[in-house]
Nucleic acid binder design. Structure first.
Lengths: 147, 147
DNA sequence: ATAATTCACGACTAGTTCGGTCAAGATTGT
DNA sequence: ACAATCTTGACCGAACTAGTCGTGAATTAT
């Protein structure tokens, strides 16, 4: 797996926060319950996201977490790289294309192509898109149920 | 990283064998030296590739390893999945698109798209292509040197 | 003041994977 | 017999994963 649960859970949390913008701070426990994330683990991910400026937190009763940016201004690429580090699929894609290490690898050119496509897709997808997709999914589920 | 050194080294070994088809068995030590792979580690990778039918080995003096298939009939996809297991970039891409786990994930649709593209590219690239690319690289390097 | 609520931060842990090494054995050529 | 070569499995340290837990700090309600 390229992504660990960090990238999965962290994005889930951002989606949850994006869906509740303008309703005041959302508590960790709520996010954890709704998105099925162990609460004490979510802690670390929220801390990371806060350090990188994606959300701000307030303590005390009525406190919680809020997005610090517009959902449409947060790309999947930047969030995942914040949570997971580099998304390079293999070591040698990070080497220069003409380098000795790149040539020794033998599959560098294939993976650099795949990596570029991956970053393109992740870079053009925002948290707002993810929320929109989820809302669409909910509408379809509701329609099914009403039949 | 999605790929460990297994996928890297294993493919290097296949490229090396493909380049020496028709010259009789190639020894482990030769491959290890040319491709900069720890020999006793390469051992395991050759064993895996043999089990999956990509090469055959002969023991004793003059023994070594040979490809069991045409280089053009070995795709990068199958080799890497043999060496690394599933290349799924995250857990939820393996869930059904409409499932509960898929919906909970939130980014499933994006990654299924990326995964499909990745498999497409890897599936249409063969060991023969990798060898050809390497030969092209060598020609260019030789041209540079002759100036 | 003080109690209750909520986040903040770091220590700790069990389990797994990574990237190997090493030793003992099997097989074959000379 | 002996040397070259592959075969197999045991073993190992370091790093990473996916958490838990405890203490403390900030804020609000009473």
């Amino acid at each position: 797996m390229l992504l660990s649960t960090k990238g999965d859970y962290g994005v889930r949390a951002l989606i949850d926060l994006a869906k509740h913008t303008g309703e005041g701070p959302v508590q960790r426990a709520e996010i954890a319950r709704r998105r099925k994330i162990p609460e004490s683990y979510l802690d670390h991910l929220l801390a990371q996201l806060r350090r990188d400026g994606y959300l701000r937190s307030t303590r005390g009763p009525g406190g919680g977490h809020e997005l610090a940016k517009e959902p449409a201004d947060i790309t999947l690429l930047e969030v995942l790289e914040s949570l997971e580090g580099s998304l390079a699929p293999m070591e040698c894609v990070l080497e220069a294309p003409g380098s000795e290490a790149g040539a020794l690898c033998g599959q560098q050119w294939v993976w650099q192509d795949i990596y570029a496509h991956m970053r393109q897709r992740l870079g053009e997808t925002t948290v707002a898109d993810l929320v929109e997709h989820e809302r669409e999914h909910e509408r379809q589920a509701a329609a099914m149920y009403s039949i």
